[in-house]
Design a binder for these strands. Structure first.
Length: 137
DNA sequence: GCCAACGTTGGC
DNA sequence: GCCAACGTTGGC
């Protein structure tokens, strides 16, 4: 299983909205960046991801799961864009802020730190374990 | 609200 | 195929 991180501005799409979708999940549409898209194409059903609030909060607030592999993005009028569907699994007991991540030497290589503009990014197994621990899981 | 970083577009 | 211009993201 692989691990990922999904970024969203809570003004646009928040964790609470994601939770409200329940088991149906939500199409992670609107991504118009090749690297981010390629990351989604690499995802498998059952992969896990962090749900990160950018701009407001700047923290990891929950865990999501990929529930459908990449398909054409219904919000795009261009066939080159596609996206996965994700569903909320559980909130994290203790949100992990960007500051927390930057303060952890073992997380210095996280894409979140190194390339803050990547909206869908891979997380290593090691990083996943460390962040989960910090989140009280 | 500003601005730096960076991805994308389009002219050549 | 290069690169300048432009638009967008996201931290501060």
């Amino acid at each position: 299983m692989a691990f990922w991180l999904f970024k969203s501005e809570p003004d646009t799409w928040s964790w609470d909205q994601q939770v409200a979708k329940g088991e149906d999940g939500e199409e992670w549409g609107g991504v118009r960046n090749y690297l981010a898209r390629n990351n989604m194409r690499a995802m498998k059903v059952g992969d896990r991801g962090f749900f990160y609030h950018s701009n407001i909060g700047k923290q990891i607030v929950g865990i999501v799961e990929v529930c459908r592999e990449s398909e054409p993005d219904s919000t795009a009028d261009d066939p080159r864009w596609d996206c996965v569907m994700i569903k909320a699994v559980q909130p994290v007991p203790e949100p992990v802020t960007l500051e927390d991540v930057k303060g952890a030497p073992e997380l210095a290589d996280m894409v979140l730190v190194k390339n803050s503009r990547m909206s869908v990014q891979p997380v290593t197994e090691r990083e996943w374990a460390i962040v989960c621990k910090m989140a009280g899981l």
